[in-house]
Write a protein that binds this DNA or RNA. Structure first.
Length: 414
DNA sequence: TCTGGGGTCCTAGGACCC
DNA sequence: TCTGGGGTCCTAGGACCC
C-alpha cells in the first residue's frame, strides 16, 4: 500500500509559518525574476489566478483583492522540505522523496480504518513539528495514491482509494492523472477517452502501439497493477543546470561573461557537493521570445573536456570559451545558462589517455571557497569574473528573510 | 514594461560493431 | 535474380513531472 504525502500550497505554507499576516488572505509566490505565479494560496486560487500566470497580468488585482506577493525563497523552502521529510521518515523507513513537497511512503495494508487513522496522525505530526499542512492519499499503486492525494483536498486531508475504484475513476479528468499531461489528454480526448476509467479500460495493444509503454504503465496502475516501485535510493543526477532570466536585457559580452562565470561557479559547487564530476559543459543564450519586435536569437555551444572535473576554474574556463563561440553583438539577450552533462561519480575517474600529468586532486581553492560559503553563507567569497555590481542579476523584489538558514535572519519572538 | 527553472524518460533514426 | 542477424551508442525531439 502506497501513501502519497503532499504539502498544501507548499511555498505559500512555508511563508505563512513565519509570517502569520499571510493567513487567510490571497498569497502569490513568484518564480525567479518575479515573472510568473508559481504558488498560490487557496484564496488566490478562488479569485481565479491560474498556475504559471504572468505576474504583470494580475497586477491590477493586487489592490482590489489585497493580494500579498512574495519572491521565491528557495533557501527557506529547501530547508522546510527537509524538516517535513524528516518527520515522514519516522512513519515508514520505506520512503521515496519525490519532489520538494511530496513523498511516497509504503505501508502494510491493515484496514481502511487504520489507514485513515494513520493519515490523520501524519497530518497532525507534520503540522505540529513544522507548521506545514499536508494531505495524505492511499492507493495500491503510486498512480492511485497520487489520485487519492488529489481527492484528499476535498476530504479533510486523508483519502483512501478503495479496491474497486471504478465509480471514482469515472469522475477523474485525464489531466489529473499522474503521467498524462496536456498533449496526451488532447490526443486521448479526440479518440473519445474522457476520464481515468475509460483510459484504464483501453486495449493494451492499442495503447502501446499508439502511445507507447509509458501510458500503458499508467493504464495498468489505474487498474491496480503496480508497475512503478518505490525508489528509495535516488540515482545520481545525469544533468546539472543553472540558468536565469536577467533582471533587465543584456547586450554586452562583459555582462554575459559575468553571468556565465557566475552560473558555472554555481553548478561546479553543486556537483562538488554531490561528489560528482562532469566532462561536458554547455552554454546557451536566448533573447526574449515574447518580444516579436526585437531580433530573435538563441544558440548553444558544447565543450567536451579531456578529463572529468569539478574544478570551478576549469568549468568556468570551458563555459566562457563556449560563450565566445555563440555570442553575437547587437542583440538583446534575456536569458542564459550553463548545463553540465556526462556526469560521473568523483570516485571513478576516467583518465585522459594522452595526458602526461596524474589525474587531478581536488582543487584546494575550491575546497576553501566551499568551506567559507558553507559557514558564512552563499557567495561570501566569489571570483571577480562573476561580477560585483551585477546589474543583470535576476529580480527578487519581495523575498522574505532566510528564517531558518541564516543566523542574521532568525525570527524574533516578542 | 513586465512572461521561471530544473529535471526525467522514451522513441526513432542513423551510425556503428561483430 | 539472389544480399543476415543481433546488437550498442548517440542524438534530437517530444512528452512528462514539480
Amino acid at each position: 500500500m502506497f501513501a502519497l504525502v503532499d504539502c498544501n500550497n507548499f511555498y505559500v505554507s512555508c511563508e505563512r509559518v513565519f509570517n502569520p499576516s499571510l493567513e487567510e488572505v490571497p498569497v502569490a509566490v513568484l518564480s525567479n525574476n518575479d515573472g510568473c505565479v508559481i504558488a498560490r494560496s487557496n484564496e488566490l486560487k478562488s479569485i481565479g489566478v491560474p498556475m504559471g500566470c504572468a505576474f504583470f497580468k494580475i497586477r491590477p488585482l493586487i489592490e482590489k483583492h489585497n493580494i500579498k506577493v512574495l519572491s521565491s525563497n528557495y533557501a527557506l523552502y529547501g530547508d522546510m522540505s527537509h524538516r517535513v521529510m524528516t518527520v515522514l521518515h519516522d512513519f515508514s523507513p520505506r520512503i521515496e522523496i519525490y519532489s520538494i513537497d511530496e513523498a511516497f511512503l509504503e505501508f502494510e495494508f491493515t484496514s481502511e480504518h487504520a489507514l485513515y487513522q494513520l493519515g490523520e496522525k501524519i497530518r497532525k505530526r507534520v503540522k505540529q513539528h513544522t507548521g506545514i499542512p499536508v494531505g495524505v492519499g492511499f492507493g495500491t499503486t503510486k498512480t492511485l495514491a497520487k489520485l487519492a492525494n488529489h481527492l484528499s483536498k476535498d476530504a479533510n486531508g486523508v483519502y483512501f482509494m478503495p479496491g474497486s475504484p471504478e465509480p471514482i475513476l469515472s469522475k477523474i479528468n485525464l489531466t489529473d492523472i499522474w503521467g498524462v499531461g496536456r498533449r496526451l489528454a488532447a490526443r486521448l480526448y479526440k479518440l473519445g477517452i474522457r476520464n481515468a476509467l475509460e483510459l484504464s479500460q483501453l486495449d493494451d495493444q492499442f495503447i502501446s502501439k499508439n502511445f507507447g509503454v509509458v501510458l500503458l504503465r499508467t493504464a495498468y496502475e489505474l487498474r491496480g497493477k503496480s508497475c512503478l516501485s518505490l525508489e528509495e535510493i535516488q540515482d545520481p543526477k545525469k544533468n546539472v543546470c543553472c540558468s536565469r532570466t536577467f533582471g533587465r536585457p543584456v547586450e554586452s559580452l562583459e555582462y554575459l561573461h559575468e553571468a556565465v562565470a557566475s552560473y558555472a561557479s554555481n553548478v561546479a559547487a553543486k556537483i562538488r557537493k554531490d561528489k560528482l564530476r562532469t566532462h561536458i559543459v554547455t552554454v546557451f543564450l536566448k533573447t526574449n521570445r515574447f518580444r516579436n519586435d526585437l531580433p530573435q536569437y538563441s544558440n548553444l555551444s558544447t565543450i567536451t573536456l579531456p578529463e572529468a572535473t569539478n574544478s570551478s576554474s576549469k568549468i568556468i574556463a570551458a563555459a566562457v570559451k563556449a560563450l565566445s563561440n555563440i555570442f553575437r553583438p547587437g542583440i538583446m539577450y534575456n536569458n542564459c545558462g550553463v548545463l553540465l552533462q556526462g556526469i560521473e561519480s568523483a570516485g571513478v575517474l576516467q583518465g585522459d589517455l594522452f595526458a602526461l600529468a596524474e589525474p587531478e586532486e581536488n582543487d584546494k581553492l575550491d575546497d576553501a571557497v566551499d568551506d567559507i560559503n558553507r559557514r558564512f553563507g552563499r557567495n561570501t567569497v566569489f571570483r571577480l569574473s562573476e561580477g560585483v555590481e551585477k546589474p543583470w542579476q535576476t529580480a527578487r523584489k519581495w523575498c522574505s528573510p532566510h528564517y531558518t538558514t541564516d543566523w542574521n535572519d532568525l525570527p524574533c519572538a516578542k
